[in-house]
Design a protein around this nucleic acid. Structure first.
Length: 894
RNA sequence: GGGCGUAUAGCUCAGCGGGAGAGCGCCUCGUUGACAUCGAGGAGGUCCCUGGUUCAAUCCCAGGUACGCCCACCA
């Protein structure tokens, strides 16, 4: 017996356990089936499930569950990412709470009691990961994700690390990885370089300081420069002016004296200086600004690094400023310049400042040695693969974004000065010679060959950008570089499901590495880009705004299926999702509705029978509902296959609630209560059969509820729905005659109800329905379904072949139908107004059609069927108009 | 500065070269023997503006306005 209400939580736990027990999600390596592969975007090992994950994984789960039911050999590969900076940050913070800090060669900070080295730190991170890492994968189970958990991978696993080594060494030997000294985005909080993508621009209200630099040898003459960052002036090595700027032409080649420092700096002519901006002269700090760096290279300027790793002033500045924190230095320098009378003015200035996306502190352009990937070279085949359609984006417009970025791609800085991550396999000889090798032994051999004798090597201390290993995910998880069975069977992937914000971080880089290392084979054929989930007001969810919706709380409150269904129903292509709780509530109600439909079947003794064949049905209502179901199936199938998940959800919702529950079950009631045992048996079987088919169609979206009902009312004991076959509906089950007849009845009952409602017919009133003798079809249909109509429309009697009584307003109803309220309750005035309004509307319509149909060009150029259709519509409208006119006259109107 | 997207009912959003749609909310009526987490019906719209293409534009094109996002730059 089904419980009185659906209790999601208990059902979800039980059903998930059954699936796991049956190993229902395991990749099968079944050669008789076609493989279907999806690689999960590995969540950060530190992460917990947010609503974006919920959407992302719901969509993936729908795809894999659907394909599994289609008989594909599905691999949904799960795992987590070691998330270099994010994880190091989390663990550092936890250690910090215990007074432990990392030994960075600095004195122990006040309040802390212990410093630990690299090895110890990494040990602690692993310990942390054992304890609390990967919570998110457990949370994915609550959502219902059907990953092959036996194949779970972690980017720091041995195998995946082996892949990283192999890729690094190979790319290095191909000169696609190299070491270079250039400006990088330096995060002073984490003491590491970060890539361009990890920089976030924030608008702030700042100032523009105008400084006067004295000209050497010309007493009293100054050149004014403006800056948003006064502290960098200590590293100035030039002032640039535009070559055609008349104001400064005579100064080019001369020198200015850098205040506070006393250094002679040259005045150069360079197009970079914009005469329109500020004073037209710009200070050049090659070691701390990306543009200035380029200018410096062009003019062979000295590059003076004024900061240390913490962005404190270094020993390269005058003693008074050494060791100052950068913002303190700014205040001091402005004050000193003012004291010297060299501060011309301060303007307010709104500008953007780059911040580290993890640390949140302003980043410093900083001159260091780093490792780079020659992304431009790797991008070429990755661009070609999309151009040629070997990988397609859905929706297609994202291809533009992809091209845009790929065609302007910059060298990818992959080294990070962190401890947590894949350490770079590079060793340095005594003179700094680099040896990149798989391991230390190999490096030593190479070094010995180079120097002619064994030497001591020191290993590069940097680790790789976390995305370096993520980029290999589509094949490293399958065992590459070993040539495994899994690799052969499940590469390339079919679909990658992700949101647009990691197209650059991840998708682009997987494309590059996949093509490079898998013999030019793309890592996936389709990239499905889904929406971003925003809050009710359309704002991005963020912890600081406090508008974060926790999917686990929603699951607790409404059930996983309701949450999944909501996300699916809202996941239209090309638009962000605004998530309102009222929406989830609505779909929770849908879950309840399904549950109650099953209860209704159960109460009417419907029983599952494996050999039931609806093709043998005799009752028209039963043939009708089967036909309706058969027409829903292709809608759902096509919607899922074309990634229009919201349409699939809508089709299911509409069918189950409004067709099956609202109409069919009502139709079935008299049959259940009647004396015709054959009809009763047929209806029992059909009601349940159709319900089960609908459950199958809904299963990819709402797996828990459907599996539970299949277990309790179907064949779930013997066959899990999740591994069963997608329901087929033979063409023959579509019954046009039954469709036409019952759809007519549905419409008519609706109309009768409308009239009752509109005319305020009191509940007890007697109503007679008189069918015009002229309409054979209507007669037949009413005759066949007399009982249904009488019950559902609460019609007292139905009579045939009666003359149309004069004075009735109900001519407005469909051709052959009349509803006659025996109690005289019509509000004449109200009815007249309604009719007039309706006629006005029709008049406009008729006018439009009339004009169109008398337009020669329309008649000549429009397709014949369109013309015919319009004619028909005009005729219909005119006929209705006549009826309305008659009705109005009878009511005494004009 | 470059690119992308969006604009349709009170709200959230589908849709479409030929009759303007759904859910929620609102109003009316009904139903308490599957389900009040229910059913039937209704009101409500200049499909952002201007121009163009077309026999026909809410839809296609161009321009504009507003909002959102991405990239780059910012002395």
């Amino acid at each position: 017996m089904l419980d009185k209400t659906y209790r999601p939580q208990e059902v979800e736990d039980r059903q998930y356990a059954r699936w796991e027990e049956a190993k229902a999600f395991a990749a099968q390596f079944d050669e008789t089936k076609k493989p279907f592969t999806i690689m999960i975007p590995p969540p950060n090992v530190t992460g917990s499930l947010h609503i974006g994950h919920a959407l992302n994984n719901t969509i993936q789960d729908i795809l894999v569950r659907y394909q599994r039911m289609q008989g594909r050999d599905v691999l949904w590969q799960p795992g987590t990412d070691h998330a270099g900076i994010a994880t190091q940050m989390v663990v550092e913070r936890q250690l910090g709470a215990k007074g432990i800090e990392l030994d960075r060669g600095m004195p122990l900070a006040p309040g802390n009691s212990q410093q630990i080295g690299r090895e110890e730190f990494i040990k602690r991170v692993w310990e942390w990961r054992e304890e609390s890492g990967g919570i998110i994968l457990k949370q994915l189970r609550r959502l219902g994700a059907s990953c092959d958990w036996s194949r779970e991978r972690f980017t720091m696993d041995e195998g995946l690390s082996e892949a990283v080594l192999k890729v690094f060494v190979t790319l290095y030997r191909k000169k696609l990885i190299y070491r270079d000294k250039r400006l990088v985005n330096w995060d002073p909080r984490f003491h590491t370089a970060i890539s361009d993508l990890e920089v976030e621009q924030k608008e702030i209200n700042g100032h523009l300081w105008h400084f006067k630099y004295p000209i050497e040898g010309e007493e009293g003459r100054f050149i004014t420069v403006a800056t948003t960052r006064p502290e960098t002036m200590l590293g100035d090595t030039a002032v640039a002016v535009h070559p055609e700027d008349e104001r400064y032409r005579d100064l080019v080649g001369k020198h200015a004296i850098l205040p506070l420092v006393g250094r002679r700096i040259v005045i150069v002519a360079d197009d970079y200086a914009d005469p329109e901006q500020g004073s037209g002269a710009v200070k050049i700090t090659p070691a701390h600004d990306f543009n200035d760096f380029e200018v410096g290279k062009r003019h062979g300027l000295e590059m003076i690094n004024v900061f240390d790793r913490d962005a404190h002033l270094s020993d390269s500045v005058p003693e008074a400023y050494r060791g100052l924190e950068r913002f303190e230095a700014r205040r001091r320098i402005v004050a000193d310049m003012e004291a010297e009378g060299l501060l011309e003015k301060i303007d307010d200035h709104r500008h953007t400042v780059p911040h580290g996306d993890r640390s949140g502190v302003p980043i410093e352009p900083y001159l260091t040695d780093q490792w780079y990937v020659d992304a431009a070279t790797l991008a070429k085949p990755a661009i070609e693969a999309v151009e040629s359609g070997r990988t397609v984006f859905v929706p297609k417009q994202w291809e533009r974004t992809y091209y845009e970025w790929m065609r302007n791609i910059q060298p990818w800085c992959i080294s990070r000065q962190l401890w947590w991550g894949h350490q770079i396999p590079a060793w340095y000889g005594p003179d700094g010679e680099v040896f990149v090798a798989h391991d230390e032994g190999e490096a030593a051999k190479a070094a010995e060959a180079h120097y002619g004798k064994p030497v001591d090597l020191t290993r590069d201390t940097d680790v790789l950008d976390t995305w370096f290993s993520s980029a290999l995910w589509p094949f490293s998880t399958l065992g590459w570089p070993e040539n495994t069975k899994a690799l052969k069977r499940y590469y390339p992937g079919d679909v990658l499901v992700t949101s647009f914000d990691i197209i650059f971080f991840w998708v682009a880089r997987m494309m590059m590495s996949g093509l490079e290392f898998m013999d030019g084979e793309v890592p996936f054929h389709t990239v499905y880009i889904h929406a971003l989930v925003r809050d009710e007001k359309g704002q991005k969810m963020s912890k600081s705004k406090g508008n974060v919706v926790d999917p686990l709380e929603l699951i607790d409150k409404f059930g996983a299926d309701a949450v999944r269904f909501t996300l699916t129903a809202l996941a239209a292509q090309g638009r962000d999702i605004k998530l309102a709780e009222s929406r989830i509530e609505g779909y929770r109600n849908f879950c309840t509705k399904i549950w109650n439909a099953a209860r209704f079947c159960e109460m009417n003794d419907c029983a599952y029978g494996a050999d039931f064949d609806p093709a043998d049905n005799r009752q028209r209502v039963n043939r009708w509902i089967v036909s309706q179901a058969a027409q829903v199936e292709p809608k759902v199938r096509q919607a899922i296959e074309s990634y229009r998940f919201n349409e699939a959800a809508q089709a299911i919702y509409q069918f189950v609630w409004h067709t099956y529950c609202d109409w069919y079950l009502e139709f079935a009631k008299p049959l259940f209560q009647g004396d015709d045992e054959a009809a009763k048996a047929e209806t029992r079987a059909t009601a349940l059969w159709v319900l089960h088919k609908a459950l199958f169609l809904a299963h990819p979206i709402m797996p828990f509820l459907t599996e539970e009902l299949w277990l309790q009312t179907g064949n779930g004991e013997k066959e899990l729905m999740t591994t069963a076959a997608w329901p087929g509906f033979p063409e023959a089950l579509v019954d046009a005659e039954a469709d036409a007849a019952l759809n007519w009845v549905v419409r008519m009952i609706g109309q009768i109800r409308a009239v009752r409602s509109e005319m305020n017919v009191p509940p007890g009133a007697r109503i007679a329905l008189i069918v015009n003798e002229a309409s054979d079809i209507s007669k037949a249909r009413v005759g066949d379904h007399q009982a249904l109509i009488q019950t559902l429309a609460r019609v007292e009697t139905i009579a045939f072949d009666q003359p149309v009584p004069d004075g009735s307003v109900q001519d407005v109803l469909e051709e052959a139908t009349l509803v006659l309220p025996l109690a005289d309750v019509i509000d004449i005035g109200q009815e007249q107004a309604r009719l007039k309004k309706e006629m006005d509307k029709l008049k406009g319509e008729i006018g439009k059609l009339d004009k169109k149909l008398s337009n020669d060009q329309f008649l000549a150029k429009a397709p014949a069927e369109v013309v015919a259709e319009q004619r028909e519509r005009l005729a219909d409208s005119q006929q209705t108009m006549d009826k309305l006119q008659t009705a109005l006259e009878r009511l005494g109107g004009v």
